[in-house]
């Protein structure tokens, strides 16, 4: 048989469409299907949506757990260094520890958390970055410590930070003394040890003498 001509196709198409007009889908069936669809749409939880919801919940819980135990990076704001201008020093820095991001409300739990964060950060700093030492003069003002390196740099450490630092036993609880600082490349203080070394400063702009002259030993 040859391919159907266009007139034959049109004829059959026309007859077919007319035949279809007489046999439409029953309206009751349409209504029934739409009602079923609406019911499914409103149904709060099919097994699929429960599964998706449970996946979401598990995912969020895992993420929270991961975040809560993730080591703080050295650039995180846990160990904060604020820089201030000063006429006496080229730079003045204030070092302090931020409150741990935690929902823990009990003091003991908060301190434990702080300790964990500190240790992780220290491990990271000591493992991943170059550490250098510097000699400084330590002066204690109540619970805050001040470390000065001639007129170049003054570091002010908060009491929370001092409490966490590795302090040599020879550090005196009061007065002034020469110490050796262990510093990370990004400036965080890692340890403070007493030293016999004295820092000889050049004459500063105010004409003050070097530190060495003002201290015994």
């Amino acid at each position: 048989m040859n391919k159907p001509t266009s007139s034959e196709r049109d004829e059959l198409q026309s007859l077919y469409q007319q035949a279809k007009q007489k046999h439409r889908m029953p309206a009751a069936l349409k209504r029934q299907l739409l009602a079923e669809c609406e019911a499914r749409d409103k149904r709060p939880a099919s097994w699929r949506s429960w599964w998706q919801l449970s996946q979401l919940v598990v995912g969020c819980a895992a993420m929270l757990l991961l975040l809560s135990w993730m080591p703080w990076s050295p650039t995180s704001d846990f160990y904060q260094i604020e820089v201030a201008a000063s006429s006496d020093y080229r730079q003045v820095q204030y070092h302090r520890l931020a409150e741990p991001r935690s929902v823990l409300t009990q003091q003991a739990a908060r301190e434990d958390r702080l300790q964990q964060l500190w240790q992780r950060q220290q491990e990271q700093l000591q493992r991943g970055q170059a550490i250098h030492t510097r000699t400084a003069l330590l002066q204690q003002h109540e619970s805050n410590w001040q470390l000065t390196m001639c007129d170049e740099l003054q570091l002010n450490l908060s009491k929370e930070l001092v409490a966490q630092l590795q302090l040599g036993q020879s550090i005196q609880p009061y007065g002034s003394q020469w110490v050796e600082l262990e510093l990370a490349a990004t400036g965080q203080v890692l340890a403070i040890r007493a030293t016999e070394q004295v820092l000889h400063c050049p004459q500063n702009k105010a004409g003050r003498a070097s530190f060495g002259s003002g201290l015994a030993g």
């Binding site: 035949a19 279809k20 046999h23 439409r24 889908m25 029953p26 069936l29 349409k30 299907l33 739409l34 669809c37 609406e38 499914r40 749409d41």
Partner: peptide
């Protein structure tokens, strides 16, 4: 979305064709 309005549109478009095809 699973919203019924889209299914309604699909039934409007294809419902009669399908019914007639199966009926025949």
């Amino acid at each position: 979305t699973g919203a019924s309005k889209w299914l309604d549109g699909l039934i409007q478009h294809c419902g009669d064709d399908l019914y007639h095809f199966i009926l025949r």
